[in-house]
Design a protein around this nucleic acid. Structure first.
Lengths: 344, 344
DNA sequence: CTGTTAGCGCGTTCAG
DNA sequence: CTGAACGCGCTAACAG
């Protein structure tokens, strides 16, 4: 059929008239309500094929006006979009949203409450169906005002009252897993490098708790702690003097991959090899872990999955605190204590 | 005034009636069309204050139905959201969009044309005002179908006909800048590590061209090339044998920060120090550059700015190929050739 | 049973 | 400065 180019958009009225039915009937057919409306299969078929061949797409603005829903989910984050790998959360969330015909509206506050408030206003104005409140670091956040009765799921964070549904990595189990990797390799004396200082950041605390649990369960004393922040520079600055002072750890748990990178630098400076001299395990499962030489075994934050689960929880109206497992990504940084290689 | 809680939303009709005017008048006032409609200042003031105190917010779905605009921008990317630092583009784009009362609708195709098509459909259905087509790597892309007459700005990429407005980093000038840093430090023999192989990736080619230009302008012969991909592993695997074979470069340009990281690993293995033995400059300006020890001087991709410029170009209807400067982020990886430190 | 008429939702805008 | 129509899909009430 020549000249049948689908120029412009086709309205429901047009589909209806071409199919020789009313808008109402067309609407019911296309929304799958033929059963309760007892519409004849013949009519249904006709409407469907017309809609199909005309490339009919409902105008979501019009539908939205009526239904007060927009098939749109708002994602409000502090530093997720710009984050090194937390941004993967957006990928998982986007995929899950698309599977249900939804789309993501994003807004990054940069940690500014005023910006967050502005973002919320914009999203509410656009009638988002729900909001994902996301943080780059596992933490507690106060639910911002202005969301009204909108469904909210907090991802990688909880609010103080734990009143909302939340999706979090199981950091405590992750901590146990990290320690377990070293224990199973035969290590006994484990040193932990990293900070738990920032009071609103939960990850450090929980990871430490998990490590402590695993050691305790194995009948071992608590691990030695080297406080050295969360960063590459901090880790190097904290560990280098300690090592220069003669410390010779055999097994090191770094609380983030960045700390592991700083640790590698400090160890290399002393000529200590991974894993021959020191076994290392870290957290986050970021690309950094794989880039180190040898790659470091890391307990991964499942950002992708967190985003997807957050969206599903939102759309399915789930009411729960979801704890997602943190998979151990094996690297080449762990070995049995074996024979200690001596050199200077 | 007690009990004046702003429950639910206030409609324009309500504002109008409270102010004792028609919806029309209220609409004109709130849209700033008082001048052309010759509305009295008194009425204007009254409407404004009522709207303000009632916390009036227009229903964008309704407005959208009429105006066919949504104050929403679609961002369609391949691997930006999950990218290590290209995700910063979303931050810049979001900020610029918000400044103009717009919001970002994102969709990541993962490089799948089918997914991209689905995303486009969803965005068109939601009447986005325009689309930012973004790639994580500087490249050429064919404009996808289905966008119809929607304004499109390509960011970090161009289409083969260069028909659309595009925003790109000035990779060629960046290449010149990288070489310049080494030339100004007094280096003459420069080696380039990295790949230009992938035909659709422009960055490598342009960076190389810029480097060649700078060397040529300085009356120097072309740089030696070590092809070793774009990755940490690739760079290490490519450079280590070369160095073991006795090569002793004094100045190295790495085509990405990841290559620089691999280069550092290979250099360290040979006991070659940066910058005493080898000066290193790289590209991307990612966080990796700062984490290396010493941090590597890197020619940065201004992702943040690219996102912002892309949005502005879209909203202002700009028609041009924008080339953004790539700032040199100084690190501690460059020194004068000076006295060569010998050791093994 | 099968399908239609009619009005809603809310801001915008043309003709008064 | 106002009345009324409009954009488009949804759905309660109703007729063939």
């Amino acid at each position: 059929m020549p000249g049948a180019r689908p120029r412009g958009r086709v309205t429901l009225a047009e589909v209806a008239s071409r199919a020789g039915v009313s808008r109402t009937t067309a609407s019911y057919v296309l929304n799958g309500r033929t059963a309760q409306m007892r519409i004849s299969p013949a009519v249904e078929q006709r409407v469907r094929s017309v809609a199909e061949s005309a490339g009919y797409r409902p105008d979501l603005a019009a539908a939205s006006l009526r239904t007060r829903r927009s098939r749109t989910i708002g994602v409000i984050s502090d530093h997720v979009a710009g984050g090194m790998f937390s941004s993967r959360l957006l990928v998982g969330a986007g995929r899950a949203a698309r599977e249900q015909g939804h789309v993501l509206l994003i807004g990054e506050s940069g940690g500014e409450p005023a910006t967050a408030a502005a973002i919320i206003t914009e999203m509410v104005d656009r009638r988002v169906d729900g909001v994902l409140l996301v943080t780059a670091a596992t933490s507690q956040v106060r639910l911002p005002e202005g969301l009204g009765p909108l469904p909210v799921v907090t991802v990688n964070c909880t609010d103080p009252d734990a009143s909302s549904t939340s999706v979090l990595p199981d950091e405590r189990a992750g901590g146990r897993a990290a320690a377990q990797v070293l224990l199973e390799a035969g290590h006994r004396g484990i040193v932990v490098a990293g900070e738990d200082a920032a009071p609103e950041v939960l990850a450090g605390r929980l990871r430490l708790a998990g490590i402590a649990e695993a050691l305790s369960a194995a009948g071992l004393p608590p691990a030695e702690r080297i406080a050295c922040g969360w960063t590459v520079e901090g880790a190097y600055a904290g560990l280098a003097p300690w090592l220069h002072g003669g410390a010779r750890p055999r097994a090191l748990v770094c609380l983030t991959d960045r700390v592991a990178m700083g640790a590698y630098q400090a160890l290399a400076e002393l000529g200590l090899r991974v894993p021959e001299d020191v076994s290392v395990v870290s957290f986050d499962g970021s690309e950094i872990a794989q880039w180190l030489r040898p790659s470091v075994t890391s307990v991964a934050i499942p950002f992708d999955e967190m985003g997807a689960r957050g969206v599903r929880a939102l759309l399915d109206g789930e009411q729960a605190q979801v704890l997602l497992p943190m998979p151990v990504v094996d690297g080449g940084s762990v070995a049995a204590p074996g024979v200690r290689q001596e050199h200077h």
